[in-house]
Nucleic acid binder design. Structure first.
Lengths: 335, 335
DNA sequence: ATAATTAAGTCAAGCGCTTGCCTCAAGCCG
DNA sequence: CGGCTTGAGGCAAGCGCTTGACTTAATTAT
């Protein structure tokens, strides 16, 4: 097929090992031989075979990324962060998307193991126990992004959904709002669904505001569910003066519903989102939101993974990155 | 390290080749031996080493994807489509992001070649000649997405930006608009910048409308540039009744600027976008746009690549996928 | 002058799997 | 009953690279 070490060795008249060493910059040959080898390698357009090297060295320089969905801007952004740092350390990324389905996750864990990836980053689905177990059993360095892990074996990185959600609600409270509704995500989803709801409840409690079940509507994080949820909220006896949506998409949906109901935002009602993705700046009014450090989530995950791969000790198992309150046009002071 | 064919062979008391054959489903062993081998393999939790297999078989089942930017929803969507079909054919995806920079592109082409990927999909930057040449020289099956290729060697897949843009402008014309402005992308970018502008000019010409230079503003495809461009358009003597933006993001920017100027959309001015991404449904009014078949672009690219890899003949070198006119709220009939 | 060190290489055994070719015994046919 | 086919499996070369151990000649130290 293509040109190999052997070919070069034959032409230069040295052994394969010498060629290998020279090409890898291991000082072991004379100036003259080195130069010659380099010359010949260049003129033959030698391209090292990473597969063979991987086999010999037992490392592939590949990181496997298990993700539920690359269309989702959140995952795309985290992936971008991962890739950036991975490049720095000479790793390439294999991505595997699972649609959040357990069997796909399991399948890909196996495939990545077969491909002998040097490490894995998992941010798919809800981290079923079986996945966590399988991940651990592979013995491949793995870090988990934004998924609660049961065992404290795999390092993980998150945002603190409880306190960030708390921060959002607290902001609304400080603006003078008392009747604050929430459009939550799926409460079965511990990480972002349940925990954001928890933060909401906690903030209300801390500020002595009653928690009213009728002020909670559940959505699925997507725009349309936000619109529907808002519709329901507006048809109740207790109409809120502010609504906190657990995602920007639902926040935008809420804005749409409110406008359709003839409300002005933020004059008649304040609306907040969570995420700070593109959508939150496209809508009108632009959405006040909690900015997730998506790119940094990826970068840090990869930094951590790199440490694990290199065998460095980690200070902790669970890392948290802070979010940022981003105040835009959809919320206002209630006088 | 981990358990190998050899280990299994030793335990069962047969040769490695027999184990290999059984594990690969090549009928060559007796029922009894087969069963035994499978049993032992399972109990030892044998995981085949794809790296070794790749070396032996000279194929990696990996596709390299060279992309400028994964944050961009367009690329993310195409990637999703690619991955879906890749999975079907048993390929995994290595992604390499280049920021559209030539040297990065070249670097990754080399890396992917070293990794001996079975195929590559290129959709980064503006396809400089040197990249095309390098790509061709690798002899690795490659398909190009949405980039004009000089030589008709590499198969490529596109949307027809000229006629799709024509379609958009034609729609505005048929709504009765005569003064139609365009917010273009970078005209140096042949594929989506220049060609969309060409389609605009062509439509005007075909309907005997004058082309006026002052009705063209150049942006960079991003929201803010659309906003600025719209600002400029509104300050001229000839105020357009409709604006065609070469991207949804710029379209949304245009909407914002128009609103700020006190215009109602579509009552006072119609605005169109191009792409149909999430943003176009988040803004208010929702944007009429040209829907790119992003996912299908990816799927088809991978289908084509698979054919090339399998050595099948292609009917053509250049493929086009149709877009779809998506009528929403930002355009109206001019009476 | 001799022993010890070093520079410059070579050898060959891996890494784990695939595969064309060979063997050997049993079954089959005429 | 001898030759032929066939089923079941083994052999070993090969994929392309790495690396510890070994060799040899030159250089240095004593």
């Amino acid at each position: 097929m293509s040109v190999t070490l052997k070919d070069i060795a034959a032409i230069v008249g040295v052994s394969e090992s010498t060629v290998s060493r020279v090409l890898n910059g291991i000082p072991r040959a004379s100036e003259k031989t080195s130069k010659r080898i380099l010359e010949v390698a260049r003129s033959l357009k030698y391209t090292p075979n990473e597969v063979a090297r991987s086999l010999a060295k037992q490392q592939t320089h590949i990181i496997g990324l298990i993700i539920s969905d690359i269309y989702n801007p959140y995952f795309a952004a985290v992936t971008g962060g991962i890739e950036e740092i991975a490049g720095l350390y000479g790793f390439n990324l294999i991505i595997a998307t699972t649609g959040g389905q357990e069997e796909e996750e399991l399948k890909y864990i196996t495939i990545l193991k077969e491909k002998r990836v040097d490490g894995m980053i998992f941010m798919s689905g809800r981290m079923p126990e079986i996945c966590e177990k399988t991940l651990i059993e592979t013995l491949i360095p793995t870090v988990v992004v934004a998924r609660q892990v049961k065992e404290e074996i795999l390092p993980s990185i998150h945002i603190d959904n409880v306190s960030e959600s708390y921060q959002a609600v607290e902001y609304l409270i400080k603006l003078g709002h008392r009747k604050i509704a929430m459009i939550s995500g799926d409460l079965g989803d511990i990480e972002s669904g349940y925990n954001r709801w928890l933060g909401y409840k906690k903030a209300l409690a801390d500020y002595n505001l009653p928690y009213r079940a009728e002020l909670l509507e559940q959505g699925d994080f997507r725009m349309n569910s936000g619109k529907i949820a808002m519709g329901k909220l507006l048809q109740q006896n207790t109409v809120p003066t502010a609504v906190f949506a657990a995602s920007d998409a639902m926040g935008v949906g809420a804005i749409k519903a409110a406008k359709e109901a003839g409300l002005r935002i933020p004059d008649d009602i304040s609306i907040m989102g969570f995420d700070n993705n593109l959508i939150s700046r496209a809508c009108d009014p632009e959405l006040t939101t909690i900015g997730q450090p998506v790119k940094d989530l990826g970068k840090n995950a990869m930094e951590i993974l790199n440490k694990v791969i290199k065998g460095e000790k980690l200070e902790k198992r669970t890392y948290y990155l802070p979010c940022e309150l981003i105040i835009r046009e959809s919320t206002r002071l209630l006088i």
